[in-house]
Write a protein that binds this DNA or RNA. Sequence first.
DNA 1: ACCCCTTATAATAATGATTATCAATTGTAA
DNA 2: TTACAATTGATAATCATTATTATAAGGGGT
Lengths: 137, 137
Amino acid sequence: MHMRMTSQREIILKELQDSHQHLTADELYERVKKFMPRISLATVYRNLETLSEAGIIGKLEISGRQKRFDADVHPHDHIFCLQCQRVDNIEFDRNLVNPAAVASDKGYRITGYRVEFKGICSSCRNNQEKKRDGDEQ
Amino acid sequence: MHMRMTSQREIILKELQDSHQHLTADELYERVKKFMPRISLATVYRNLETLSEAGIIGKLEISGRQKRFDADVHPHDHIFCLQCQRVDNIEFDRNLVNPAAVASDKGYRITGYRVEFKGICSSCRNNQEKKRDGDEQ
DNA sequence: ACCCCTTATAATAATGATTATCAATTGTAA
DNA sequence: TTACAATTGATAATCATTATTATAAGGGGT
Ligand SMILES: [Mn+2]
Ligand SMILES: [Mn+2]
Ligand SMILES: [Zn+2]
Ligand SMILES: [Zn+2]
């Protein structure tokens, strides 16, 4: 249950927190290398796993793509852009979902759930419009 | 938009339909081999992709695990067992989620969403209980 | 039946993300 | 300071999936 806060671990955590984004392991690896040029990608993966197991960070497993990590551990949901892959938090009232109401179904004991939205982010939409305007000339 | 219904494609589709399960590509491969011993795993993957693009079957991308395929294409949600990996349909009233209500958020144009429950299925719970009873002796 | 063209197949290589291995290093506590 | 456990960096291995490619069907039109 306990865990040592190594310098690698600390920098990885701090970079994730400061980013205010949902980063992948290799994105974090690139950032952390600026401070620790000799760090290994495996160390980044290992520590992200350790941190998420300890509940210090969250691990996002979005439909068929790379894992992303989240410094914000309070229960919340996400939306991802089908075009640029970015992942953002989304305001969704989780009280609307009542696990107890579906619990009897198939005899499962439900331990959690998540709501995953997908769509096109504003910057990708802007790019599309620019492109379309250009084509019309 | 059109597509030929080859014998491989037909058997893969029929096996998925008859299974009444959410099978993975390699599970289907094992089943289809009984009828077509020379079929290639790549053919199974290729056809599942083609069929799902044509909207004839659904593709389920569950949190960080193998893709599963679904002969039932009507919009519905799923629950998976953390222990044995099985995936079942779940009764969840999708009217409770209103994409328009969260659409303004971050400027996304939302094109879809899914609700993913996780838990322990009844047979895995029974196994746990049996095991616990045994330990108490 | 034959030719042509497109699509699909089987076999296999390649890819990408993640995890495993392991010898070397570091931290901690007696 | 020694002794042990935890961690690291480097790299190999794994797993699911996709790409490649030479070969084989499918289906008109003749
Ligand atoms: Mn988040
Ligand atoms: Mn289903
Ligand atoms: Zn985007
Ligand atoms: Zn189970």
